[in-house]
Amino acid sequence: MKDLTLEVAEGKLNIRVAAWIEHENQILVSTFPDGSISLVGGRLKFSETTLEGIQREVFEETGEHFNSPVLFAIVENFFYDIASEQQFHEFLYIYKGEIQQQSAYLEANSAAAEVISWMPKSKIKMLKPDVLQELVLLPNESIVHLVNLESR
């Protein structure tokens, strides 16, 4: 199945999923070769629900099953990618859940270049998109909708 990415004259539209996984005041993150840090996750596949997508992504990146996933936030993300020289409009569905705790995670997909590790929540400002730091302060009572405007 193909990723849910649509190229248009103005740029790319992405539909993505991410996991908010906490343990002992830390959060599980992906660090990419360019140094950027984000939540574990990726692009949705065509005909895949967001729930199916986040379960697949977490398993691919950690080798662990994503337990008790609950939709936590939706982020509309507008940004410019310097490497591809493209504008992006992205919808990011973030699920809270749990996985079996390990000090390090090996990716099931060895071709991926990202590193999965625990980051102290005190360093949340390092996450991309920037608006993710707001999720630390929000109650878990309802789904949160955030907009990240790095470019538009």
Score class of each variant (00 low, 15 high):
residue 33 P to G: 11
residue 30 S to V: 06
residue 32 F to D: 03
residue 41 G to V: 09
residue 37 I to Q: 09
residue 15 I to F: 14
residue 37 I to K: 11
residue 21 I to V: 11
residue 44 L to C: 14
residue 43 R to K: 12
residue 45 K to S: 15
residue 33 P to T: 08
residue 27 I to M: 01
residue 35 G to P: 05
residue 46 F to M: 13
residue 24 E to N: 13
residue 30 S to C: 14
residue 34 D to E: 13
residue 41 G to Y: 08
residue 27 I to Y: 00
residue 36 S to N: 08
residue 16 R to Y: 10
residue 18 A to F: 06
residue 39 L to T: 03
residue 35 G to R: 08
residue 31 T to L: 07
residue 38 S to Y: 12
residue 38 S to I: 09
residue 37 I to V: 15
residue 17 V to Y: 11
residue 19 A to L: 01
residue 23 H to K: 09
residue 28 L to H: 04
residue 28 L to E: 02
residue 18 A to W: 03
residue 17 V to N: 10
residue 27 I to D: 00
residue 29 V to P: 02
residue 36 S to E: 07
residue 31 T to K: 15
residue 38 S to C: 12
residue 25 N to D: 02
residue 33 P to F: 10
residue 45 K to M: 15
residue 21 I to N: 03
residue 34 D to H: 09
residue 22 E to W: 02
residue 24 E to A: 07
residue 43 R to G: 12
residue 24 E to L: 11
residue 37 I to A: 11
residue 33 P to V: 07
residue 30 S to G: 11
residue 41 G to P: 11
residue 41 G to F: 08
residue 39 L to M: 05
residue 39 L to D: 03
residue 32 F to H: 11
residue 32 F to R: 04
residue 21 I to T: 04
residue 37 I to D: 05
residue 44 L to I: 14
residue 27 I to E: 00
residue 17 V to I: 13
residue 36 S to P: 01
residue 29 V to M: 06
residue 33 P to Y: 12
residue 45 K to G: 14
residue 21 I to C: 05
residue 30 S to M: 14
residue 26 Q to N: 15
residue 32 F to T: 04
residue 44 L to G: 06
residue 34 D to V: 11
residue 29 V to E: 01
residue 22 E to R: 06
residue 34 D to C: 10
residue 46 F to G: 07
residue 26 Q to S: 14
residue 43 R to L: 12
residue 15 I to R: 13
residue 25 N to V: 00
residue 30 S to I: 06
residue 22 E to K: 04
residue 39 L to K: 04
residue 37 I to L: 12
residue 30 S to E: 14
residue 34 D to T: 09
residue 42 G to Y: 07
residue 29 V to W: 02
residue 43 R to Y: 08
residue 28 L to D: 02
residue 23 H to E: 10
residue 33 P to C: 07
residue 39 L to Y: 03
residue 20 W to D: 02
residue 38 S to R: 15
residue 39 L to R: 01
residue 18 A to M: 08
residue 40 V to Y: 05
residue 36 S to A: 08
residue 26 Q to E: 13
residue 31 T to V: 15
residue 16 R to C: 14
residue 38 S to N: 13
residue 16 R to L: 14
residue 42 G to R: 07
residue 35 G to F: 07
residue 28 L to I: 02
residue 27 I to Q: 00
residue 33 P to L: 10
residue 36 S to Y: 09
residue 34 D to Q: 12
residue 18 A to C: 06
residue 18 A to T: 03
residue 20 W to K: 01
residue 34 D to S: 14
residue 26 Q to T: 05
residue 15 I to S: 14
residue 44 L to F: 11
residue 20 W to M: 02
residue 27 I to K: 00
residue 30 S to D: 13
residue 19 A to C: 02
residue 33 P to H: 08
residue 19 A to E: 00
residue 43 R to E: 08
residue 26 Q to R: 15
residue 37 I to T: 15
residue 32 F to M: 06
residue 37 I to Y: 07
residue 45 K to R: 15
residue 29 V to Y: 03
residue 29 V to L: 04
residue 24 E to H: 09
residue 41 G to W: 07
residue 35 G to Q: 10
residue 25 N to G: 04
residue 25 N to Y: 00
residue 22 E to L: 08
residue 25 N to Q: 05
residue 42 G to P: 03
residue 22 E to M: 03
residue 40 V to S: 05
residue 20 W to A: 01
residue 15 I to Q: 13
residue 16 R to D: 12
residue 21 I to W: 05
residue 26 Q to C: 13
residue 34 D to P: 05
residue 17 V to C: 13
residue 42 G to V: 08
residue 24 E to R: 07
residue 39 L to N: 03
residue 20 W to N: 01
residue 23 H to W: 06
residue 27 I to P: 00
residue 22 E to Q: 08
residue 42 G to M: 07
